[in-house]
C-alpha cells in the first residue's frame, strides 16, 4: 500500500506547491518526504523520480495545447524535436525529484541511524 500511496501523495503535494513556489520546491518536497517517511533506498528514489516526471511531463504537455512552445523551444535548444523537449522537461523533474528523494533517505540514515556513524 505504501509503495503505491507514497508516489501518489508526492504527485499531489508537488503539484499543489509548485503552483505558488519556485521550481526547486520539488527537490525540497522529495527530500523531506523521504527523510520523514524513510521509504527505503529504492522507493525513495523511484517514487520521487516517477512523481517528478509525471508532474513535469503532464503539466507542460497540458500547458502547450498546440505544441507551439515545444516546437520553438526545441529550435532554440539547437534542433530538438517537440517530444524531446517534453521528455527533457519530464526527466529534469524526474532526476531532481529522484536524487532529492534518495538524498533524504541517506541523510536520514546518516543522522538517525547511529550504526552508520
Amino acid at each position: 500500500m505504501k509503495t503505491l500511496l507514497y508516489p501518489v501523495l508526492l504527485i499531489v503535494i508537488i503539484f499543489l506547491l509548485q503552483l505558488f513556489l519556485p521550481w526547486w520546491i520539488l527537490a525540497v518536497i522529495c527530500f523531506a518526504a523521504a527523510y520523514l517517511y524513510k521509504p527505503g533506498f529504492w522507493l525513495s528514489f523511484a517514487s520521487a523520480f516517477i512523481a517528478g516526471f509525471t508532474v513535469w511531463f503532464i503539466k507542460s504537455w497540458l500547458s502547450d495545447s498546440d505544441g507551439h512552445v515545444a516546437m520553438l523551444t526545441g529550435n532554440i535548444l539547437g534542433g530538438l524535436s517537440p517530444i524531446s523537449v517534453l521528455l527533457l522537461t519530464g526527466f529534469t523533474g524526474a532526476l531532481t525529484g529522484g536524487l532529492s528523494g534518495l538524498s533524504g533517505q541517506m541523510i536520514n540514515e546518516l543522522t538517525i541511524n547511529k550504526k552508520l556513524l
Partner: peptide, 26 residues
C-alpha cells in the same frame, strides 16, 4: 539547474527554472 552555478561562459538557460512547467517557458 537554478542558474547559481555556471559551467560555461556562454550559459544555457538554467534548465530547472526554464523548463519548470508552472512558471518557465511552458
Amino acid at each position: 539547474l537554478n542558474g547559481n552555478i555556471q559551467i560555461s561562459s556562454n550559459p544555457l538557460p538554467p534548465f530547472g527554472k526554464f523548463l519548470n512547467p508552472f512558471k518557465g517557458v511552458w
